[in-house]
């Protein structure tokens, strides 16, 4: 970010006339996002678990429970696959959001984070760059899993536009949820601590309508699921796959993501500010 945009405009006469005018925030975020995505692609094995685990759970659940579940749940035309596919999608996206923080903490470990902090760009663009790469990765991941579901016959009631909305919703969810691992990464600088944010994802995904609708839950679980944002994301994705367009359900899904972002975005910005004050990757 240039001097002026950072709000610390120097009296030019006092310093150098020859100041490097750094890249504006959006362009810097684009360049940094490209770099972050390139690194994701260069370690392809790193993306496998968050694809394979959901596919495995999807296959096992549909194969083993599909017949029983279909008797209890109104699964519609797509069968239990259509009911469970959104779960696999959300699980995959939620789990891989940990890698946003991991990317940052690895840069801190190698000292490269200091180099980014020293570049004449806004510090915000460092976070935005990371997030744009992760958002892009999440869209590819969602596209892939959704395509697998379609191939195996889940159906898609909302059609091609619904496909795009599902992918967009999951990408936005990836960004909102990534704030947690980013905040932990920036706050602790520790690989282990960041990796453990994985643990938040599991209860969040499974204490929701991931496996059964609200009506079939025990009271305590239902109470939790009703305030769990993942429930509303699942409902929205599920409605697009099984029922078509239900704007109310969609809005509630996006609102739930917005509510999460309202917590995670300030958390990660605060953590970034604190990290910068404490001093780079030290």
């Amino acid at each position: 970010m240039s001097v002026i945009r950072d709000g610390s405009t120097p009296p030019r006469a006092a310093g150098d006339a020859r100041l490097a005018a750094g890249l504006p925030t959006a362009a810097a975020a684009f360049e940094l996002g490209r770099r972050a995505f390139r690194n994701i692609v260069r370690v392809p094995i790193g993306n496998l678990p968050s694809l394979i685990i959901p596919l495995f759970i999807l296959a096992v659940n549909v194969g083993a429970l599909g017949a029983i579940a279909s008797r209890q749940i109104d699964v519609g035309e797509g069968g239990y696959l259509a009911f469970f596919l959104p779960t696999a999608l959300v699980l995959s996206i939620t789990n891989s959001a940990v890698s946003s923080g991991m990317g940052v903490v690895r840069d801190m470990d190698s000292g490269y984070f200091d180099k980014l902090l020293l570049a004449p760009i806004s510090r915000l663009s460092i976070l935005l760059g990371r997030l744009s790469a992760d958002g892009f990765r999440a869209s590819l991941q969602a596209t892939l899993l959704l395509t697998v579901g379609l191939i195996f016959g889940s159906g898609l009631a909302s059609g091609p536009l619904g496909f795009l909305v599902i992918v967009a919703m999951l990408a936005v969810w990836a960004l909102a949820y990534a704030g947690i691992s980013l905040a932990i990464a920036l706050r602790t600088g520790s690989i282990d601590a960041t990796q453990s944010s994985f643990l938040i994802g599991f209860p969040l995904v499974f204490l929701s309508t991931a496996t059964v609708p609200l009506e079939l839950m025990s009271p305590w679980m239902r109470a939790f699921a009703e305030v769990n944002p993942v429930t509303y994301i699942l409902n929205a994705v599920r409605s697009l796959i099984s029922d078509g367009w239900d704007v109310g359900v969609l809005l509630r899904g996006f609102a739930a993501i917005g509510a999460v972002a309202l917590i995670t975005v300030p958390l990660s910005l605060l953590a970034l500010r604190r990290r910068v004050a404490v001093g780079g990757s030290r």
């Binding site: 970010m1 240039s2 001097v3 950072d6 610390s8 120097p10 006092a14 310093g15 150098d16 020859r18 100041l19 490097a20 005018a21 750094g22 770099r35 390139r38 690194n39 260069r42 370690v43 840069d107 190698s110 000292g111 490269y112 984070f113 200091d114 180099k115 020293l118 570049a119 004449p120 990757s281």
Partner: peptide
């Protein structure tokens, strides 16, 4: 010519830094 606390961005625009442990991106 710039204060490191209040004019950090201007300082960063003026300086080049090679730290003791070269912080580089190994995958690039």
């Amino acid at each position: 010519g710039y204060d490191v606390v209040s004019q950090g961005a201007a300082v960063r625009a003026s300086i080049g830094v090679a730290l003791q442990e070269a912080g580089l991106d190994g995958l690039a």
